[in-house]
């Protein structure tokens, strides 16, 4: 499938990027130009993202795309997949950059500060309060320390790249750790008599 702005077919892109020499160089340069426009749109409205930073993101994206051509499934436009890879590269870099400036004590995943009291809107309902207390109970009872740390850190906005480093693991293993934690919470709440609708009431207005 082609659009006016993407004159190459998926096959064109793949064959050209897998070729050698000047043909490949020219296609990578073309891809880089397109990804630069893609990232400017994707990052629109974000402060402090310089053109130089976008250029770095594009270079990282080109490396990742070149190394992972075999993972392109062919079920969408090649440029859409390439854009997704580029957006991930850019946002990952921005998150790492942000957390570089966060003081260590704020980033310690095992020392997340207790925050404000439960809001009045949640306390107002006795049923909701019971569900909240059950949730706290299950968090303490049914999660391992590692699961609890990872899940709460993710909710606090700690980037996965940072968590992977702190927990000495990899991104997919981290996802499984947090997935297991969520499943344990869901199962623990159900075992205690709190179903999906009780939990849904905590965020439904």
């Amino acid at each position: 499938m082609r659009t006016a702005r993407d004159s190459r077919t998926n096959v064109d892109w793949l064959e050209s990027l897998r070729s050698q020499g000047p043909r490949a160089d020219a296609v990578y340069a073309e891809l880089g130009r397109v990804l630069r426009r893609v990232l400017h749109r994707a990052l629109a409205g974000r402060l402090h993202v310089s053109d130089a930073a976008v250029d770095d993101f594009v270079q990282e994206a080109l490396i990742r795309i070149g190394a992972n051509l075999d993972s392109f499934r062919g079920d969408c436009r090649f440029m859409t997949w390439a854009a997704a890879v580029a957006v991930r590269a850019a946002l990952s870099a921005l998150r790492r950059s942000h957390w570089r400036h966060v003081p260590m004590e704020e980033a310690q995943i095992d020392a997340l500060p207790p925050t404000t009291e439960i809001g009045a809107s949640l306390e107002a309902s006795t049923d909701r309060n019971r569900t909240v207390q059950a949730l706290y109970r299950v968090i303490e009872r049914d999660l391992t320390e590692r699961q609890r740390s990872a899940l709460l850190a993710e909710l606090a906005g700690v980037p996965q790249d940072v968590l992977v480093q702190r927990l000495d693991t990899n991104r997919n293993a981290l996802y499984k750790l947090i997935h297991d934690a969520r499943k344990a919470l869901k199962a623990g709440l159900e075992a205690d008599g709190f179903g999906v609708e009780d939990v849904r009431a905590l965020f439904d207005t």
Binding site: T116, I118, L122
Partner: peptide, 8 residues
Amino acid sequence: MKLKPDTL
């Protein structure tokens, strides 16, 4: 332990 309303 207490979580912010938004986090909860």
